[in-house]
Amino acid sequence: MEAVYEKYFRDNIPHIWCAGCGNGIVMGAFARAMEKLGWDQDDTVVLSGIGCSSRITGYLDFSTMHTAHGRALAVATGVKMAEPRLKVVVFMGDGDAAAIGGNHFIHACRRNLDITAVVINNYIYGMTGGQFSPLTPFGKKATTAPYGSIDRSFDMVELAKGAGASYVARGDVFHVKQLVDLLAEAGEHKGFSLVEVISACPVSYGRNNKMAEPIDLLMQIKKDTVNIKAAQNMSEEDLAGKIVVGRHYQADLPEYSEVYADMVAGLQKGGEGR
């Protein structure tokens, strides 16, 4: 791990995250996934939105861009369209990707540009102190849902599939080895890929929901998650309340920048494009 630290992190650790936060686990898993993929850091741009998880770009030793709240995918779309040779990875939080960035998220799925999106879902707006997000489960408490959230939550996996993403996976911060594999697989996939990562925020989510100790949330994640292979043999009843982790969907669909390049090539030959 020492070598991975040396290679992928800037020399500005310690990070700002609280004890027990899942963001560091995801960042570590991403570095290991990079090591697996062997991508050239010079040709990789890592972007993020705004929130605790989005501070990840400050620590990673790549060309990095900490954008505005919800807008990371819109900016990443410009990066990838303008320079298709670059590898593009985007980190977002749950409020960031599913609320303020929801529109950009579904359209990024639909276009299928080769971008790897990682949504770190800790069920809460952490940086602002614990308000409910569109991914906060129904009934869970938050500072703006003191009597339990009455909002239905999005299922990011179903949302991404429905919107047209060509690779959709869900991992979590307890099963780290699997997370590394999923991140690497998503990176390798050509087209828009989503990895939702079920994460832990003991300070803002846990404290509001009787899981204030870091270990409480991790054990809860361990208890709630079911591997997708095991889930195939389980009844709907058994799966109620469970979080299915693993690769949910993968399809070979035309990648947007390649379709565009084909059109350009056709036009430059004097044709009518596609």
């Binding site: 861009m65 819109a74 990838k80 369209m81």
Partner: peptide, 21 residues
């Protein structure tokens, strides 16, 4: 590229400018 709204349009041109266009 036609984007989903004007916010995204600004985002995309910011991304393109950041990579030198």
């Amino acid at each position: 590229i036609q984007m989903e709204d004007e916010i995204a349009s600004m985002g995309a041109i910011i991304g393109a400018s950041a990579v030198g266009h």
